[in-house]
Simulated assay, not measured.
Amino acid sequence: MRFERREHRPAALVLLAPLIAVALALALAGVLIAAAGAPVLEAFGRIVTGAFGSRLAATETLARAAPLILTGLAAAVAFRARLWNIGAEGQLYLGAIAAAAASAHLFAGLPGAVQIPLLFLAGALAGMVLLLVPLWLRLRFSVDEVVTTLLLNFVAILLVSMLIDTVLKDPMAFGWPQSVPIDDNATLPKLIPRSRLHIGLAVALVLAVAIHVMQTRTVFGMQARAAGLNPAGAVFAGVPLGRTLVLVAMLSGGLAGLAGAVEVMGVTGYVTTELSPGYGYSGIVVAMLANLHPLGVVLTGLFAAAMFVGADAMSRSLSVPSYIADVTVAVSLLSMLVAIFFTQYRIRR
């Protein structure tokens, strides 16, 4: 038995791969639910109901999907060019603290129509800077960016922790470690009244479409894809590899930083070290489940959000650990990696 690379990847197999991965992950989740002593079908029903069964549940799922889509896009853009950005979590936190600091000290009092775009830009710039450092180390010293981006997550979160305990500490928080709040004018408008669903979701959807158009209709998109498929061949064909990777890093880091700005401006209103329940890491799963396709990221981001929100509801009603959602999402990634392998290779006798 041997593995043989396919000359062409069947379109049906590529489309089925994410579905197979999700099905395998749900099957394993069912085993864990049964081991916890809960009825499996009822538990899955509670997950669906908890995620979409009411106005509150549906809006909460959609609100949770916004940062997942943005971090998923950040991972998809970078991975497509073989820039392994594992640092979206740190970039998200830096984007959030940059937005909070800019709102409190630079743009306070400005109208929302002016301040909101400026804070989006501040968050995106912070995320860009954090990713450009590992890219420079890769281009200058051939340092593996997987290691540097991963370790910078901890550096960024510790930096945020220091800032919210010192210069950016909220004096009205009664000692609780949180940043100064964003200006009232910078709060993102709600898409649905009396809910947490804000226009950050619309921003994420627009960006997903824009990135899809960029990747398929522009010279830069073709250069980024060429850099990912065959870097040596891309250089031989005249693609400026270094410049292309810098632009990819700016886009990827900017999306992750924007996710942090959106979360603090749309949901929390201030920054804590518990701002993200792992959106940056979950974004990698979202991107891989979508096979790095920007429009697919929207669907997989909704799936991940539904699992997290629905599992919380299921946990409360059936006394089942909510960590089953984390296991399901993680196994989805592993299953997707195996499925992607078999879309590229076949078994021969």
Rank of each mutant, 00 (worst) to 15 (best):
I182Y: 13
I182T: 13
I182R: 12
D184W: 11
N185K: 15
N185C: 11
L188S: 10
L188Y: 08
P189Y: 11
P189C: 05
I192A: 14
R194G: 14
R194H: 15
R194I: 14
S195P: 13
S195I: 07
R196C: 10
L197M: 10
H198W: 10
I199K: 03
L201M: 09
L201D: 03
V203T: 02
A204I: 07
A208N: 06
A210I: 01
I211Q: 00
H212G: 10
M214P: 04
R217E: 05
T218E: 00
T218M: 00
V219I: 14
G221V: 02
G221W: 00
G221H: 05
G221Q: 02
M222Y: 12
Q223K: 13
Q223W: 08
Q223D: 09
A224L: 07
R225W: 07
R225T: 05
A227G: 01
A227D: 03
A227V: 09
G228M: 04
G228L: 06
G228C: 11
N230V: 01
N230M: 06
N230H: 09
N230T: 02
P231I: 04
A232C: 07
G233S: 04
A234L: 04
A234Y: 01
A234F: 00
V235H: 06
F236K: 14
A237G: 11
G238N: 00
V239K: 06
P240T: 03
L241P: 00
G242E: 04
R243V: 05
L247C: 06
M250N: 03
L251V: 13
L251Y: 07
G254D: 03
L255E: 01
A256D: 02
A259E: 06
A259D: 05
G260V: 00
G260A: 04
V262L: 14
V262W: 00
E263T: 14
V264S: 04
G266L: 01
G266P: 08
G266Y: 00
T268F: 12
T268S: 15
T268Q: 14
G269P: 11
V271E: 06
T272A: 12
E274R: 15
S276M: 12
P277R: 09
P277F: 13
P277D: 08
Y279Q: 05
Y279S: 06
G280I: 09
Y281L: 15
S282V: 15
G283E: 10
I284A: 12
I284H: 09
V285W: 10
V286C: 12
M288G: 13
A290L: 09
A290Q: 05
L292F: 15
L292S: 08
H293T: 15
P294L: 03
